[in-house]
Amino acid sequence: MHLRIDGISKAWGTSTALDRVSFNAGASDFVCLLGPSGCGKTTLLRIVAGLTEPDAGSVHLGGRDITRLPARERGMGIVFQSYSLFPDLTAAANVGYPMRLRGVAVGTIATRSTELLAKVGLGGFGGRFPDELSGGQQQRVALARALAAEPALLLLDEPLSALDPAIRAQLRGEIRTLQRSLGIPTIMVTHDQDEALALADTIVCMRAGHIEQIGSPRDLYERPASRFVADFIGRANLLPTHFVREVMPGFLERRPPGADATWELCLRPEDIVVEAGPGGDAVVADVTFLGNLARARIDWRGQVLLAELPGRSMLAPGEPVAIGATRGAWVAA
């Protein structure tokens, strides 16, 4: 179902959590709300879920205004970061819970729960209690339970944040596969840019209660709309206009109009070309070897740049180098 968020605002006392936020999500989209902590992404998710009431604005699902509808009448499935399973119920009973609330027949609940647990790779674990499951398994149960609600919309509130990195990566892949195969529109809150890049069809990048940019992961990485997005997603070298005019004036042609101070050039570390040679006007400050690649900090006329090179490149600190760039994007400072 199509989700439309329109001019949502929310304040907690005097501090603004959301300021007139709007966006749309398509019928089977995976949308990530991405931003640093305190940017309002969780508040926005809770408003969509009906757990928090907005001060202004509206939420439409499938053309129906659900802004004032209480959470329990919205029919959404939700997975929280942690501690959301009933500790005194087995995995199967947890999964069956939404159906029990709706008065589904006991036999149907049992079959459905077994099915759903198998779907998240936990066939045979139905009799376990949450404290007998690992963190990753608990989140799988929570996911199965969210699906048991036959949700019109699946909401994931940092579902992977409390897990170990290895399990996080694995479960991330499984969530994506599952969501694709079921075609349920999904909104996930995360502060982890890697997660957002890997999972989302659309990323909504938020900052301090408003949306900085909406777009595909590739859009946000290659054409960040603001200094904040450039900095938050991936690594960025941000160069002021006057410096660019001095060292690589070719980029100036594509700069949108405006005062110098309002624009900066964003160069991704992998787009910087480094050539060793006595004629170079830059100097290698230090090199960090990371296996498949090496990250070098380079002093170029008083500006320190971060460059990523193949791990085999033999740069040494103090070595003179020449700098170029294959591509760059102008961002609002």
Binding site: R72, G77, S82, S84, L85, Y97, L101
Partner: peptide, 23 residues
């Protein structure tokens, strides 16, 4: 009582009584 549990009950369609009993 974890807040998440509370919210989960509400999101899955439980009222005050379900929240008290289950969360």
């Amino acid at each position: 009582v974890p807040d998440a549990l509370d919210d989960a009950v509400a999101a899955f369609g439980g009222g005050t009584r379900a929240v008290l009993r289950d969360a």
